[in-house]
Write a protein that binds this DNA or RNA. Structure first.
Lengths: 229, 229
DNA sequence: TTCCTTAGTGTGTGTTCGACACCAATATGG
DNA sequence: CCATATTGGTGTCGAACACACACTAAGGAA
């Protein structure tokens, strides 16, 4: 069923940078390509935008198809339109980034006959197309955003310890933070609430579990704040 | 010369929100449409992306064609992809925003047989398509960005007074700032340099003219800073 | 020369940032 | 059961910064 237009049109795709938090690493979900070009190389999940779906719908659809991930935090990153970024033809891609916590979501590493896997951002394989550039942009955005928005909670399980939250920030910012100052700051902005529960099955003193205060969280998410920790 | 593809493709356009600074208002450049749909209504400058040009090239080309503006500060804003945003067919648009100073650039209000004009953001006509939404997003971005990047200098002439700079910030942030604290802060970050010149033709004490220190400016532009004034 | 308008300048107070060290609780292993 | 290893949890002090605030200086206009 061919479609004809008066002027040539670039193809339009979405690509998604999915960040996940491991015990001590920031990870990214990659797909091994089973078709040329770049056959066998690793690439970001993504695909063509259908005419009857929005960009975000396309991103969510591709995520489910290729990785099984759904109902996750997703945000538009940037649109990449270099003329030669795909060797076959002109392809413009709208990049999104996603945050998931590796414990909560059931990640089917392989669906759609493709090979999917997590890689630590600090040790990535060579990526197809300009996907390294897209990933760098997403990482930079994450680092920048964390300073003025309470982003990143999506990377943690529902109940978490303050230590986990701190490590999240340390991994994203790539530097160590002072424990006392961190706790002071986080508690002061009232973004988390103590629960009655404590950690289980740890070989040391168990930490209290916290959860976000959704109200404060959403408010700060909108108006921004200053997290120069 | 028709072009045929196996699957239907959305059309791809760029739209540009051009901000300019008047004596006391933040303004936006709009184009009056001479074709349906929305014939006669005002819209953002923009147009189709050609297959052999990048997105930014398309934005700059359309700006020259429709407003005569060139060599200006331009930054990608967001990509809008709602299915029904154009009543004719599926059109995805990559929005950019631009900053110019109204004194420096020779703005041909009308080129390309179209009617172009500046409007204060506080008093806009009804806009075609979803352009009001795009404009709101650009305005929000400008307000947000001004807090952590020395953006906005592009809105001023080459030499300017600190009073002008302050009014720029006041207009963007939409609140009054303390003169002494403002000057203290701006001078402390060494982003501007005093010149030997002073204002001319003013009916009161003439102010010193300043210009940016390009080195500091570019550095802060990259690494960001904190402008919670 | 008087008046009007904007330019230009400094201090003090409260708040926040950032550096820094020790005891508490629990599991493990001898 | 005692020792040890590991992480949890807490407070203070000095420095830097944010913010509120009011008067004199300069120049043109009437």
């Amino acid at each position: 069923m061919p479609h004809t237009y008066q002027f040539a049109r670039p193809a339009l795709t979405v690509d998604i940078v999915v960040f996940g938090l491991d015990e001590d690493d920031l990870q990214v979900m990659l797909i091994q390509r089973d078709l040329p070009p770049f056959e066998g190389e690793w690439a970001l999940p993504g695909g063509f935008v259908h005419v009857e779906e929005t960009l975000e719908e396309a991103a969510r659809r591709e995520l489910v198809e290729e990785t099984g991930l759904k109902d996750i935090y997703l945000e538009q990153l940037y649109t990449f339109g270099a003329v030669e970024r795909d060797p076959r033809e002109r392809v413009v891609t709208v990049a999104y980034y996603a945050l998931v916590n590796l414990e909560g979501h059931d990640v089917q590493a392989s669906t759609d006959a493709r090979n999917a896997a997590w890689f630590p951002v600090s040790d990535l394989p060579k990526l197809a197309f300009d996907h390294q550039q897209i990933l760098d942009a997403a990482h930079a955005r994450l680092r920048g955003k964390v300073r003025y928005q309470p982003i990143g909670f999506e990377l943690l399980p529902d109940r978490f310890t303050l230590r986990q939250l701190q490590r999240l920030y340390e991994v994203i910012l790539d530097r160590e933070l002072d424990k006392r100052n961190f706790r002071k700051k986080v508690l002061a902005m009232e973004i988390v609430k103590e629960t009655n529960e404590i950690e289980k099955d740890v070989a040391h003193r168990a930490a209290k579990l916290y959860r976000f205060d959704k109200r404060t969280y959403d408010r700060l998410m909108k108006q921004g704040f200053n997290f120069e920790i």
